[in-house]
Design a protein around this nucleic acid. Structure first.
Length: 558
RNA sequence: UGAGCUAUGGUGUAAUGGUAGCACAACAGAUUCUGAAUCUGUUUGUCUAGGUUCGAAUCCUGGUAGCUCAACCA
């Protein structure tokens, strides 16, 4: 088999497994708990699981890890399914649920009891933790630890029959109360929860724990490599213990990797939920959220997210990825594919005094200089136009080569213009600018070969399309939201300017934009229509990412 | 402070005992009808102290730092 490089450490393990004959195939799974929307950290896992299987000609299952009915919901199942598909991965007909296996899992539990490897414990919550000991001290055996197999079986069956109250007893694995790994100190296997499950309804009142359900679900599905994040590392001995205790052949192997941390955002489901519930964002799909649906609404493409996940790599070291890499990935793609357009975000009226009233003309502008096949388009031009307020300065600094009292500037694809004067209101604010144009420079070039340093974008005022344009920036002002001072909350560091709304003037073509279109608003950034708030007669554009701005950066420093 | 894991430029990741490389970021210059893109160049790194070896980022020992674990959550 010819495996495409590069390989991460997990794929190296797989290559070795295949070489030694430990495995003859590769089968992975993506196992989300349906208790929230998935984010870019999950996308990393999705790309790893699906991507690895693809690399080795194997398959990947989508399995919902739904063992806690009090936290899970179908709303999340649907969104996760959508998001994984949107990212570009296909699990074909292999959509499974841990709850599909409840019968089988129950049998496994009885088998464990029959082997003398599990017992029903009647310790109460705080007693359980007291008996468990601490990190430095061993635990003590539960008084119920040595019941007979018959008694345990009877009790467990009655647990299932609903004879006991929640919290009155639970099934535990009989391992080692003095084990240095706390997870091995007789962990819970089944607990009573008199809750309705989103798939099994009221069939069950006992539910298996993750540590028990996960390895066995993997085994049932024939998973070979069970890839998960680092916090489950200490659970691996338990993962193996259940499979060994039940003497199952061809056991899956758990391998852990470091989860994604991204600068200037949060990745915990709890914090994300808090942002949504406290209405500090518009919802799970707010374009500022690191959720897959948020990134999608923001204008990210599936391929840009996959590229990002490829570039960040896989390792076991905790790390913090610079969000600039994500920005780079979407810019890189959109630069090649996005249609160029002219949009003025902060409109300033310019009147071209020597242009005849009422005269209109079409000029030619290329659709994408990176792609000659994209061709040109006609853009209407005339006496009154809008330019960006920041493209004019009365008292410009050195090297400012936009419109200023002296010199010429080029209007993209149209003419050279020259400043004549400025109108101001009573309080001294500029209301409009007067210029003259040079008719010989039509198309944007001068026959006498004179150069102009600046080229600015513009929109013909009478035919301009109005739109709301939302400029997004990082949600947080703090680079590492996981490292905050004592007594502070990440939410104390929300960026008040994470969304700035502009009333913009657009070139007419943009009035016909569809939800699928991506545009580069020239000299500004990449934009797409907002899928939620755009309506008939109301255009709302989202800025996916801004263009790099070396001038702005230099000015900020000065 | 019990156990486990991790440590390579600012960030992420390669190098699998044999020239420390790539990407992002940063900085400089060229170019430009987008102050974008493109092109060229530059700065910055093996946590630490020993040991093994002709040779160590890699193997060994000690230290240091960070992360994880004491839910009937996942």
């Amino acid at each position: 088999m010819n495996i495409p490089e590069p390989l991460n450490f997990i794929q190296e393990i797989i290559v070795n497994d295949l070489k030694t004959g430990k495995r003859t195939k590769v089968h992975t799974r993506f196992p989300p708990e349906p208790n929230g929307y998935i984010h870019i950290g999950h996308a990393k896992s999705i790309c790893l699981n699906f991507g690895t299987a693809l690399k080795f000609g194997g398959k990947t299952n989508l399995r919902f890890d739904d063992t806690n009915p009090t936290k899970e919901d179908v709303e999340y199942v649907d969104s996760i399914r959508d998001d994984v598909h949107w990212l570009g991965f296909d699990w074909e007909n292999r959509e499974y649920y841990a709850s599909d296996y409840y019968d089988k899992l129950y049998e496994f539990a009885e088998e464990l009891i029959k082997k003398g490897k599990a017992y029903v414990c009647e310790l109460k919550g705080d007693e359980v933790s007291e008996y468990r000991g601490t990190l430095t001290e061993p635990g003590r055996p539960s008084p119920w630890r040595n019941r007979s197999v018959e008694e345990n079986l009877d009790l467990f069956r009655r647990m299932r029959a609903g004879e006991f109250e929640e919290g009155s007893c639970f099934l535990r694995a009989k391992i080692d109360m003095a084990h240095p790994n706390m997870n091995m100190r007789d962990p819970a296997v089944y607990r009573i929860k008199k809750a309705s499950h989103h798939r099994t309804g009221n069939k069950w009142c006992i539910y298996p724990m993750y540590d028990f359900a996960h390895p066995l679900s993997d085994w049932i599905e024939g998973i070979t490599h069970s890839i998960c994040t680092l916090e489950f590392e200490a659970h691996r001995p338990l993962y193996d213990w259940f499979l060994e205790a039940l003497e199952l052949p061809d056991r899956p192997q758990q391998i852990e990797f470091a989860r994604l941390n991204l600068s200037y955002t949060v990745m915990s489901k709890r914090k994300l939920l808090e942002l949504v519930q406290s209405k500090r964002v518009m919802g799970w799909d707010d374009p500022r959220m690191p959720t897959v649906c948020g990134l999608r609404r923001r204008g990210y493409t599936p391929s840009s997210i996959r590229e990002f996940c490829e570039r960040i790599g896989i390792s076991k070291a905790d790390s913090m990825v610079d969000i600039n890499l994500l920005y780079f990935c979407i810019r890189e793609e959109l630069n090649k594919s996005a249609q160029r357009a002219m949009a003025v975000l902060d409109p300033l009226k310019v009147v071209i005094d020597n242009w005849e009233e009422g005269r209109e003309e079409e000029v030619d502008v290329e659709n994408n200089p990176e792609n000659p096949n994209a061709g040109n388009r006609k853009v209407i031009f005339g006496r009154e136009i809008y330019i960006e307020a920041s493209d004019f300065m009365e008292n410009p600094p050195k090297k400012y080569f936009r419109l200023k009292p002296d010199g010429e500037v080029r209007l993209k694809g149209a003419y050279f213009i020259k400043y004549v004067g400025v109108d101001k209101d009573a309080s001294g604010n500029i209301t409009q600018i007067h210029c003259t144009y040079d008719p010989a420079t039509k198309g944007g070039d001068s026959p006498d070969g004179r150069k102009v340093k600046g080229t600015i974008h513009w929109v013909y005022a009478p035919k301009a399309v109005d739109a709301e344009v939302r400029l997004f920036d990082n949600l947080f002002t703090l680079e590492n939201t996981g490292d905050i001072p004592e007594g502070k909350d990440p939410l104390d560091y929300l960026n008040p300017n994470s969304m700035i709304v502009k009333q913009a003037k657009l070139e007419p073509m943009l009035g016909k934009a569809t939800l699928e279109d991506r545009y580069q608003f020239m000299r500004s950034g990449y934009f797409c229509l907002d899928s939620r708030d755009t309506q008939e007669g109301r255009l709302v554009f989202n800025r996916t990412v801004e263009l790099k701005d070396s001038w702005g950066k230099a000015q900020a420093k000065a």
